[in-house]
Simulated scan of single mutants.
Amino acid sequence: MRVIAGSAKRLQLKTPDGPDTRPTTDRIKETLFNMLAPHLYGCTFLDLFAGSGGIGIEALSRGAAEAVFVEKSPRAMACIKENLNFTKLSPKAVTMQTDVLTALRRLEGEKKFDYIFMDPPYNQSIEEKVLLYLAGSALLSEDGMIIVEAAKDTQFAYADALGLRIIREKVYKTNKHVFLEMTQKEQI
């Protein structure tokens, strides 16, 4: 796995050993960031279930002002920190070794994010719990976007009821990226 573009272009990233992490392939990462590229410079990026940190590092490499990496596994967090140091992107990164919902509660009122990316374990409905929290939080900036990497057959029919609108889905062989935004709140 490598950084595709930007200041850390072509640098190889380490990935944690074991079945607990499933790094996004370079090809899928490149497709994702080609879609986001025009809006990345100067943005704030939240990488949930960060694994090796490859997604947040790619965002930083391409000009994000700051990325917060949330990962519960000590082994994976050590890998993220090593990758951030190797790419020299540590000064623009914040790491949080905790579960995602605890991290979100800690970040509430402290930060707003232009992009919130999550890649939770597949087929466990974890993304629904996180989206439920995010729908009621102030963590997403006004024009912000939530991106969920999920198994190809994962359904998001509940999104509308949470006040989220699916604006795009990009389907790959075994998984997909779902792009969501908050629906506009009615003015009183």
Rank of each mutant, 00 (worst) to 15 (best):
G18T: 08
E58D: 08
G42V: 13
A93S: 06
T98N: 10
T21S: 08
R22N: 06
S52Y: 03
H39G: 10
I55D: 13
A76Y: 02
V3Y: 00
I4G: 02
M1L: 14
G63N: 14
T95R: 06
K29F: 07
T15S: 14
A78K: 11
E82R: 14
P19C: 10
L84A: 05
K88M: 12
S61M: 10
A67D: 05
I80R: 00
E108N: 03
R2D: 11
R75C: 04
N34T: 15
M77V: 12
V70G: 01
A50T: 10
T31M: 11
D26W: 00
P19Y: 12
G109M: 11
Q12T: 08
I4L: 08
A59S: 12
P16F: 03
L13N: 04
N83T: 10
T44C: 14
L89S: 02
F69M: 09
L36R: 01
T21A: 06
K81G: 03
S73W: 02
N83K: 05
A5G: 15
M35Q: 09
K81Y: 01
L32F: 10
Y41M: 15
K92A: 14
K88Q: 13
K9T: 13
M77W: 05
K92W: 11
I57A: 06
L40T: 01
V70T: 05
V68W: 04
A64D: 01
K111L: 12
A76E: 03
T25N: 01
T44Y: 12
I28R: 07
F86Y: 00
G56W: 01
F49Q: 02
K72H: 07
K29A: 10
N34D: 15
S7N: 12
